[in-house]
C-alpha cells in the first residue's frame, strides 16, 4: 500500500533539509509580524548557522516539516510536532507560513489537516494540542476549521507590541477528528 499521507490539496509536507532550509527560515524571521504570530517570546534574529544548530539539536525529539506548494514546489512555511507524550499520546503542534503573499489562502489549513491525518492515522496519537495568541484571528479560525476546540485561555499572559494579550489553548481529540472525516459514502 503506497499512500502519500503527507500531501494535501494545496501543499505537501517535506522533511526539513538542514543544509538548505535554515537560510529560508532565517529570512522569514525578518518579518517581525510573522515572528509575533509564531512565538510567545520576543522576536529576534538568528543567522542560518544558528538556525541549523537549533534544528540539529532538536531534530530527534521534534518532527519538523517544510510546507511546500504543490503548484510550483515553493517552500512557504513550516510545521512541527513537539513535546511528545507517548504515554498519554499527545503532542503539540506549531505552524507558520513564512511567505506573507500566501497568508489567508488556505495553505496553513491544508498543511494542518495533512499533519493531523498523519498524527492520528500513523503516529496513533490521541490528541494534538496548540497555543494561539488572541490577536491571531486568522490562525484561530483556521484551527477551528481543522477541528480544534478552544479549551481556555490565560488572560494577559503575553506582551506583544506593548500590549497584553491572552494565550489561548486549543486541542483536538482523535474522536473530534474522526467525526470530521467523510464517510465512505460521502467520498464516493
Amino acid at each position: 500500500m503506497d499512500v502519500d499521507l503527507l500531501t494535501g490539496n494545496l501543499v505537501r509536507l517535506l522533511a526539513i533539509d538542514v543544509e538548505q532550509d535554515p537560510r529560508l527560515l532565517s529570512e522569514w524571521d525578518r518579518d517581525s509580524e510573522f515572528q509575533r504570530l509564531l512565538n510567545s517570546e520576543s522576536a529576534a534574529r538568528y543567522n542560518p548557522k544558528q538556525v541549523r544548530e537549533f534544528l540539529e539539536k532538536e531534530i530527534d525529539s521534534m518532527h519538523f516539516y517544510m510546507i511546500q506548494r504543490l503548484e510550483d514546489d515553493r517552500k512557504i512555511g513550516l510545521i512541527d510536532l513537539n513535546g511528545f507524550d507517548w504515554v498519554s499520546r499527545n503532542a503539540w503542534v506549531g505552524i507558520g507560513i513564512g511567505e506573507r503573499d500566501f497568508w489567508g489562502k488556505g495553505y496553513g489549513t491544508d498543511a494542518m489537516k495533512v499533519l493531523l491525518r498523519y498524527a492520528f492515522t500513523v503516529l496513533n496519537l490521541q490528541r494534538v494540542t496548540l497555543n494561539v495568541f488572541d490577536f491571531n484571528q486568522r490562525g484561530y479560525a483556521s484551527y477551528k476549521k481543522c477541528g480544534f476546540r478552544e479549551e481556555g485561555r490565560l488572560p494577559g499572559a503575553l506582551v506583544k507590541a506593548g500590549k497584553r494579550c491572552d494565550l489561548i489553548f486549543m486541542g483536538i481529540l482523535r474522536s473530534d477528528w474522526e467525526e470530521l472525516q467523510p464517510t465512505t459514502n460521502e467520498k464516493e
Binding site: R127, T129, E151, R153, L173
Partner: peptide, 11 residues
C-alpha cells in the same frame, strides 16, 4: 483560577 481544561490530556 482554572483558566484552561485540556480534555483527556493525561493517561
Amino acid at each position: 483560577q482554572v483558566c484552561v481544561r485540556q480534555r483527556q490530556m493525561v493517561y
